[in-house]
Simulated assay, not measured.
Amino acid sequence: MKNIVIIPARGGSKRLPQKNILLLGGIPLIAHSILYAQANNDIIDSVYVSTDDAAIKKIALEFGAKVIDRPESLSGDFESTVSALKHVLEQIEEEIENVILLQPTNPLRPENLLQEAFDDFLKEGRDSLFTVSRSERKLGKIENRQFIPFNYTIGQRSQDLEPLYFENGLLYISKAELILPFDCAQGDSKIISENAFPFEVNHIFANVDIDTLEELEYAEYLLKKKVLRRA
């Protein structure tokens, strides 16, 4: 039984063209997730990149990942991530127990995150886990040109808000059988199940999700701050 990392990386980014191979800290964006997985080789048996792009494939191989060529039918703008994960599992002959999803657009992760999350995943005995962060914002919606508070009352202090959390995308862990059902009775493929364990991560890296040039520049700033602290 094996634990693998899958990094889905399409070539057709619209808002930030070729974002997965743009440099962050002097190396391609996708390489950060590959290296992070490799640094946890006591947990991870293999690292796979699913892509439809020749340049991404070349970089992934150079950094030591295995590559699964994603067919065009699974590479469109509206294709789900789980379809890419399922396709990878269908190409692997070995029996896989757990899949760790690392999204290349979330390249900065706390050093011990994967180890701590995986330990909790095993301890909790759930079939999936995903990372969340607490939101400190006062949220609301606008109806008929009027702002309607959602999680607070006007004048309420931020520190008195009821805790709300957001899915930060840093990592996901799923049993392979959840992604690739062995029979139709198990239902549709999923990454997160109804009993998924929410692993809380309140770290500045949880706010990094790169889809624009400004977000890439912000990640570069945080990365430089991290390096300077080590110097």
Results as ranks from 00 to 15, higher is better:
residue 157 R to V: 05
residue 84 A to E: 11
residue 55 A to R: 05
residue 218 Y to W: 09
residue 75 S to W: 00
residue 151 N to C: 13
residue 231 A to M: 08
residue 82 V to A: 07
residue 42 D to V: 02
residue 117 A to I: 07
residue 138 K to A: 10
residue 37 A to I: 12
residue 105 T to R: 06
residue 138 K to S: 12
residue 173 I to W: 04
residue 51 T to L: 01
residue 15 R to F: 06
residue 89 L to W: 03
residue 93 E to K: 13
residue 74 L to V: 03
residue 165 Y to D: 06
residue 185 A to Y: 02
residue 122 L to Y: 06
residue 175 K to G: 13
residue 29 L to W: 02
residue 173 I to D: 05
residue 175 K to R: 15
residue 4 I to M: 07
residue 138 K to I: 05
residue 209 D to Q: 10
residue 64 G to A: 07
residue 107 P to W: 02
residue 98 N to T: 11
residue 160 D to Y: 09
residue 167 E to N: 14
residue 65 A to N: 03
residue 23 L to S: 13
residue 178 L to S: 09
residue 97 E to Y: 04
residue 201 V to Q: 08
residue 116 E to Q: 14
residue 127 D to H: 10
residue 8 P to E: 09
residue 182 F to M: 08
residue 214 E to N: 15
residue 212 T to Y: 09
residue 40 N to S: 09
residue 55 A to V: 03
residue 142 I to V: 15
residue 203 H to W: 10
residue 226 K to E: 15
residue 195 N to W: 07
residue 135 S to L: 04
residue 102 L to C: 03
residue 56 I to D: 03
residue 123 K to M: 08
residue 6 I to E: 10
residue 187 G to S: 06
residue 14 K to Q: 14
residue 225 K to G: 09
residue 59 I to V: 15
residue 77 D to P: 02
residue 225 K to H: 10
residue 143 E to S: 11
residue 49 V to C: 04
residue 16 L to G: 12
residue 205 F to T: 12
residue 21 I to S: 12
residue 183 D to E: 14
residue 84 A to Y: 00
residue 163 P to A: 13
residue 110 P to H: 08
residue 51 T to I: 01
residue 18 Q to G: 07
residue 25 G to P: 11
residue 45 D to T: 03
residue 156 Q to A: 13
residue 14 K to W: 07
residue 134 R to Y: 06
residue 228 L to N: 13
residue 50 S to F: 03
residue 74 L to H: 07
residue 184 C to Y: 04
residue 112 N to C: 08
residue 178 L to F: 00
residue 192 I to H: 02
residue 69 D to Y: 00
residue 62 E to M: 09
residue 206 A to F: 05
residue 43 I to A: 10
residue 222 L to R: 06
residue 80 S to D: 07
residue 35 L to S: 06
residue 165 Y to A: 02
residue 6 I to Q: 12
residue 96 I to D: 04
residue 123 K to L: 15
residue 192 I to K: 14
residue 205 F to Q: 06
residue 16 L to T: 12
residue 187 G to H: 01
residue 147 F to R: 13
residue 41 N to T: 00
residue 11 G to M: 00
residue 45 D to R: 04
residue 199 F to R: 03
residue 226 K to W: 11
residue 166 F to H: 15
residue 134 R to P: 10
residue 58 K to D: 13
residue 171 L to Q: 06
residue 152 Y to S: 07
residue 1 M to G: 11
residue 72 E to N: 13
residue 213 L to G: 00
residue 215 E to Q: 15
residue 94 E to W: 03
residue 86 K to H: 09
residue 33 S to M: 01
residue 103 Q to L: 14
residue 196 A to K: 03
residue 204 I to V: 09
residue 207 N to E: 15
residue 145 R to D: 15
residue 26 G to L: 01
residue 30 I to D: 04
residue 113 L to C: 03
residue 147 F to S: 08
residue 32 H to V: 02
residue 167 E to K: 11
residue 163 P to R: 09
residue 165 Y to I: 01
residue 146 Q to R: 15
